[in-house]
Computed example of a mutant assay.
Amino acid sequence: MSETPLPGGFVNAVVRVGDTVRRVPGPRAAFVHHLLRLFERHGWAGAPRLLGLDEQGREILCFVAGHVAWEEGQPDDVTSDESLARVAGLVREFHDLTAGTALAGDGEVVCHNDLSPKNTVYRDGGAGLRPVAFIDWDIAGPGRRVHDVAHVCWQYAGLAPGADPEEAARRVRVICDGYEAAGRGAVVRREVVPGVLWWQDRCRRGIEADARAGLPHAVRLRAAGVVEQVRAAHDWVARHRGVLERGLS
């Protein structure tokens, strides 16, 4: 069958073949495969199903139909409060599914560690586009709930230069409220903004280190100006930290 390249990937070439997606397994493929099978056993539809490996050794995943928000300009539905709350609810669902499992190890849960609109599939069920699944689980691993929540706040609430601090703080609160409403127990809100800053610093340093080592994906990211963008986002959050934290108190 013919192969159609799918857009958006900096690290891995991904193609669609019929109703499947093919991609080269990442270095932590065994862990990710166990995780995807756990989701399947529980009937959770928020991640692709793993179907095996093809003759080239690539992963075969079911194609999750919908709108992937990988471009900068997006429909209003993608950035609506309803979508923010549903993103947080989906995160809560897979966190709760993995809490206490062998995959979570010493962590609270398994974290996705790369949640963003670009790794989210949206679908219109009659009330506008809403998130239905996350893709690209390559760097998932044991962690704390607040780590993923902080990453969601950074990526989905638009915590970067050009944002209105008060509106950004309100959107962060919508995310935290949505996470808490989807399960029992609260997120540690005092750790959310420090978690955003930690992620931004870690991301920038990671790209810089990998680019110096000559890793192709990091070289491309650096050339695209991502290091400067992340540094600017970190500076923006640090400058408006008080507003963001007051919005969560």
Rank of each mutant, 00 (worst) to 15 (best):
R189P: 03
A169K: 04
R145Q: 09
D136L: 04
R189S: 00
A211F: 15
T120M: 02
G162N: 07
P161R: 12
D235S: 08
S116P: 01
V14W: 03
L97C: 05
D77F: 01
R190S: 13
H240Q: 07
A133V: 05
V237Y: 02
P216R: 15
A88W: 06
A238P: 03
H95F: 10
V226G: 07
T4Y: 05
R170G: 10
N113D: 14
M1D: 13
R246G: 13
G57V: 09
I175L: 14
F63S: 07
G43Y: 04
H34F: 10
A238Q: 09
D148I: 00
T98S: 09
V32N: 00
A104S: 15
V11F: 14
S116Q: 13
A140L: 07
E180T: 12
M1T: 03
G57S: 05
A182T: 00
F10L: 13
I135K: 01
G225Q: 05
G247A: 04
A133M: 05
H151G: 12
T4A: 12
E180H: 02
D210Y: 09
A99L: 04
G26D: 04
V188P: 07
G46T: 03
N119P: 01
M1Q: 13
V78Q: 14
L84F: 08
F134N: 02
G128F: 07
W44N: 02
V109H: 09
R37S: 12
S80Y: 10
V149E: 01
G8V: 09
V68A: 10
G162E: 03
E208P: 00
V32S: 01
G100N: 12
D54F: 10
D114A: 06
E180P: 10
V121C: 04
A140M: 04
V192K: 02
A157R: 00
E72P: 05
E3V: 11
K118I: 01
I175K: 04
G100D: 04
A169F: 06
T4F: 07
E191V: 06
P142R: 03
A29H: 08
P117V: 13
A104D: 01
A213D: 12
G9W: 10
V152S: 01
W198H: 08
L51V: 06
D124I: 00
P117C: 09
W198E: 14
Q200Y: 07
P117M: 06
G43W: 02
A133P: 14
D164P: 02
A218C: 08
D76R: 13
A181Q: 11
H42M: 05
E228G: 13
G73E: 11
A140Q: 03
V15F: 04
A65F: 06
A85H: 08
R49H: 04
E40P: 02
R28V: 05
R41N: 06
A163L: 02
R202E: 11
V146S: 09
I139E: 12
A157I: 01
L35E: 14
V187H: 01
D124T: 00
H95L: 13
A85Y: 05
V78N: 12
R241E: 15
A140S: 15
A181C: 06
L197K: 09
A88G: 09
A233Q: 08
D136R: 01
R189Y: 13
V87R: 00
R16V: 02
T98Y: 07
G214H: 07
D138V: 09
P48W: 09
R49M: 08
